[in-house]
Design a protein around this nucleic acid. Sequence first.
DNA 1: TTGAAAGCGCTAACAC
DNA 2: GTGTTAGCGCTTTCAA
Lengths: 336, 336
Amino acid sequence: MAKVGIKRIAEKAGVSIATVSHAFRNPQRVSAATRERILAAAAEVGYTPNSLAVSLRTARSGNIVCIIPDVSDSFNSEIIKAIEKVARLRGYSVLLGDTQGSAKREREFAAMTRSRQADGIILMSHRLPFSTGSDNASDELPPIVSGCEFTGHEGFPSVTIDDRKAAIDATNHLIGYGHQSIAVITGDMENTSSKERLAGFREAMAAAGLSVDERLIVFGKYTAQVGESAAKKLLMEKSRPTAIFCFSDEIALGCMYALQRQGFAVPNDISVIGFDNIPFAKYFVPSLTTVAQPTEEIGTLCAALLFDLIDEKKLIKMRHILPHEILVRESTRPLK
Amino acid sequence: MAKVGIKRIAEKAGVSIATVSHAFRNPQRVSAATRERILAAAAEVGYTPNSLAVSLRTARSGNIVCIIPDVSDSFNSEIIKAIEKVARLRGYSVLLGDTQGSAKREREFAAMTRSRQADGIILMSHRLPFSTGSDNASDELPPIVSGCEFTGHEGFPSVTIDDRKAAIDATNHLIGYGHQSIAVITGDMENTSSKERLAGFREAMAAAGLSVDERLIVFGKYTAQVGESAAKKLLMEKSRPTAIFCFSDEIALGCMYALQRQGFAVPNDISVIGFDNIPFAKYFVPSLTTVAQPTEEIGTLCAALLFDLIDEKKLIKMRHILPHEILVRESTRPLK
DNA sequence: TTGAAAGCGCTAACAC
DNA sequence: GTGTTAGCGCTTTCAA
């Protein structure tokens, strides 16, 4: 880790530091001969530009930060992959900020744009990571786009599916199979996605003339553990549901586990539908019927929009709604 | 995003920039009164230090990079969580470098230490992300520690379990249940972990006087998809195994899925044991018997060692072996 | 207790 | 085509 700088290279190659700089950034401005010499000198000592100095000078860090509640959530990781792919193409690195749901940590990661460590933010959380007390106009915001969760702010782009419509479709799938007693296990109700999905569920039930049994709605979080305990709870209800709508595949996993463990067959006794279509979902036993979100498209679009923002392009459309799809597999079946 | 610097704050507070700097970094060196004035001025305009400039000056980036083949692998994400926790405590941020297995990207992320964007590396891959052509001594290496996979280099610390012993234990669990015809689905054999596990398997079989049917060893990767196809292949073998040892839980998931789909009950017809104990494993149907790796300890220790390296502490021990544990759940059972 | 000044390593006018 | 130079925003002696 000997610290060689542009200066050493300049000496070695017998040129000025400016020429060395050019040799790297504007190769055509330097004669082939000197360029060769410089590159050779650089290679010899293993020179790498100090990107801190470069960023300081150019006011561009080459990083974007992706604020995410939980990296280990399979759904999120699919999106991250897509984001990274786009970022790489643009010569950017992605800093993953796993917040474990903490608002404080969201703010800390978001501060990386203020401190110039990052040029923009992709936010996969439902709340804005800024002290809302700010009376500054929204144009004070750094380049930011939100994915999956709508924050309620119109000041920057968001990329989501239509959660309400997706929930309506999922519910209708169940209703179409003859289910009338349908339970729901939600995610954290602070998430816009969960709110919207619940609203969609109610809407579909109402549209079908079905009443919603409030005791069959369990408020949870997007985890398998919650799915397990919620399912146990539902099983103890007097009016046992014939189908359960889980607001995430992880919930569905825990839910099916609990159901089968208590002696209920899925889908023969109880149908289960999930949400997200994580890569594992098709391998569950039974394989999981679910609402597929276009994770790759979401990630790709988020990244593309962010770079437009960073490049100060005018965005014509703020709210991007991507299509979802009901994937019917084995965990749901028509009521005989 | 108005760009205010130390200079503006100095003007507002009527002091020099040096004093402002001190107010932030050596508060006690500044009188309470001026400090207050400075802090107030800073708060008023929402000042945040430009960490690029700070890092350039102090030659400390405050970042570590974690090079990882796949963020979406649940096993890895558990380790990451632990690393992040330790890093936060030390005032460091973790940059996650998802390489998708590409050696080129590994090298690019590793280069972040050369370019001063990061102070150290945690490597969760089996190969060194440096052009091996370097004839420089190993003390040329940046602070680096490897986790989970042993690279073969003794020049820096590594944190792993004893993969060979773990595989022996897993195999013995199966043998103890009366299984003699045992199949194996490996990970990528470039990984030291897979090599060691396979060696351990052979060792245990030999020790029990059992012969290994080479057709029952399927070379794969740590994914559910591989598990699925490998299981299908195994089912077509003339001498069908009574147990399958999967080198990752994801493989086991795909494997059990294929088995059950082809009409084989797990564990009644075939027992399956996994490796890793990812959070999902207990929710599989049947719940998965597996080799638990102490993910949190691995992550914590990796991070601790890296910071010791960064702080230039002398490390007494290079090779850290953490304990594993066989978790017996439902997917394995004694042969009647 | 505070300030002046010298850089950290690099880029980008602008001159030659 | 190449060199000079003025900083980017900050820290840190050293002197006042």
